[in-house]
Design a binder for these strands. Structure first.
Lengths: 349, 349
DNA sequence: TTATCGATTTGTTTAGTAAACACCTGAGGA
DNA sequence: TCCTCAGGTGTTTACTAAACAAATCGATAA
């Protein structure tokens, strides 16, 4: 007896379900419980059943996800790792393939756009890219391809985007330090080309301004490009000053980790000498010594949302460009504490 | 033997189908053959079964739109008129009825929530209400009714909402005046209970802070409740001061119109003595003398979007709560001009 | 008398099937 | 060579069992 190619009905019999159930599992339509679906898929691979062309048109079920190589290895990166995971899983759930593309330089990306890459996908998500200029966005728009920006936005071009609540995050972190009695607060900003980091900084400034304070320029050191942990250099500059702040807001957890290193190296205590708070809540920040007070940004949810909105753009045209902003939450850990002189006297603001 | 009211299961047994089939026939969902459906309907009338939620289920196609009576007459109101128009037209396009409800006081709204109002609608939009407290939101959430907030948000409760880009609008207006060379800028804020107005103010503050400026407290007069054109009173306070600003940001066009009245009354020229910019771009602001420089907020689009998102919440549960923010645009008109002393010397910032 | 709780009824949704359907394919006959 | 028609394959429809949620109704307690 010769082995014949197994059919859908063979799989169904083997997995103790109906052919219809197998079909639904393959096309992940509603009507199969996830555990049943799992059993079916197991059976499929066991019998070596080859699924017919999942989609009539592969282009119609593929989306691009463009990301800087800078944050290599991006998949492992604490922030975009989560975003990518969310995006990809939501895409899969909807029967889409994700064409993940990383690039190094601007011209490389332009090449991509010109070399028919855009014609092999139904939509494109662009993750946090400081180098996306308005011209580039216009060029993208001209292709008529549905595009969504992640953690990036332009106020001159109205493009749908998915963002953390960066302004509120900056505001919350600063506001929290203020509420602990700190008045002398420094901020470690990021490169200006990243709109999300600029928004965070503005949130800090607004929180300060609300209680009648300005951040002195020497407590707002520009980041130097090229250093791996930018916060380290920035913090060293500040520590060297005559007058030191009692608290610091770092624009990202990574910056904070660098800054904490600098503070420790100088022989100061966190939070007693300098309190620190930041933004992101990447996985590491719970395990630093001391653990980091930070503002949680729902990274996985952002990925999911980015796909959902992109999907919507693909299937039903003409909607209103929206900034989709997900909520942030302050996570208080050990790196923040009351201002020293105030805590001793029991004063408060 | 006493006749009892027949139930869905009685009908099902009598018509030789499952209760689910009866249910589908009643709600004409796909999944029942027309002849089966006919038999079911026949049985229904034969047994005298009374269908609960009538015909095509009106509840499923009605949404509530809750709005303060304060902004009377709301339909005519320059801001919410547009929002309501957008919401209603989008609802109509989708076959929904809009149950527009205005109320006066907090307790009146609570009555609404308790008196089964929430059970007569499939979803609820709540327009800009400063009196929506977190408790109230929690109460709303408990009803499990899909809810969307318009021009209002809480950072403590994660509820989907549709907002203008208030922060950016405040930032843009202020930034523009700064770019004209003004340094002495006053801001006319709104009541703190309106989160959208607070956000606008924070945008102003951030723009100022970015160039190292704070708004002096005497140039930031709290609004007095009870006056019809709040800006009028606020501006009078400022004009009476020894040192007057060269420019003013009004938190809304209505405030600006009041402020312009006060400036004119005092015998000063706009924009030569005091420049003014604001936020909203209501219809009137193009026809004031001088016409008003303002930041456009796409009001109609907000209404459309609010319905779209609410519709989505109704039809597919479990999505991520998002702040949906529509883009703003600066509209330069006559009420803004360069700072007088600077324009004469040709200095610029 | 009025709340409160638990059990039961009633309506709704989910996860599944049987059977029909549409489409291809290939062997057999004119 | 062409037709055709049986049967295999994937897909869809019409329906159900069973779980679930919401409303209702008593009994009981406050």
């Amino acid at each position: 007896m010769v082995k014949k190619k197994p059919t859908m009905r063979d799989v169904a019999r083997e997995a103790n379900v109906s052919p219809a159930a197998v079909w639904m599992a393959i096309h992940n339509k509603p009507g199969v419980a996830s555990e049943t679906s799992q059993r079916i898929w197991e059976t499929i691979s066991r019998l070596g059943y080859t699924v017919k062309s999942v989609s009539d048109d592969p282009v119609a079920h593929t989306v691009g996800l463009l990301i800087e190589k800078g944050s290599i290895p991006a998949i492992m990166d604490s922030f975009y790792g989560d975003v990518i995971r969310g995006f990809q899983s939501e895409a899969q759930r909807n029967g889409y393939h994700v064409n993940l593309v990383m690039y190094d330089r601007v011209h490389e990306r332009l090449d991509l756009l010109r070399n028919g890459f855009t014609r092999s996908i139904a939509g494109l998500a662009v993750a946090n890219d400081g180098d996306i200029t308005p011209d580039m966005v216009i060029e993208l728009k001209k292709t008529n391809l549905p595009v969504i920006l992640i953690e990036n936005h332009l106020d001159s071009e109205y493009i749908p985007c998915v963002l953390g609540d960066n302004f509120t995050a900056g505001y919350m972190a600063t506001r929290y330090l203020l509420s602990l009695g700190h008045q002398d607060i420094a901020v470690l900003p990021g490169p200006e080309k990243y709109s999300s980091l600029v928004d965070r900084l503005r949130g800090c400034m607004a929180a300060m301004a609300e209680v009648g304070l300005l951040i002195p320029p020497e407590w707002l050191p520009k980041p130097l490009s090229g250093y791996p942990l930018k916060g380290y250099q920035q913090m060293k500059e500040i520590i060297a000053l005559d007058r030191r702040p009692t608290a610091v807001v770092a624009i990202s957890d990574k910056t904070a980790i660098g800054a904490m290193e600098a503070i420790r190296e100088f022989g100061l205590q966190i939070p007693d000498d300098i309190a620190i708070a930041s933004i992101d809540n990447i996985a590491e920040s719970a395990y630093t010594r001391p653990s980091l007070t930070t503002v949680h940004v729902p990274k996985m949810e952002m990925g999911i949302l980015a796909f959902q909105r992109l999907h919507h753009l693909i299937t039903s045209k003409n909607d209103i460009p929206v900034k989709n902003i997900v909520y942030s939450e302050l996570i208080v850990r050990e790196s923040s504490g009351p201002a020293r002189n105030l805590s001793l006297t029991g004063d408060r603001i």
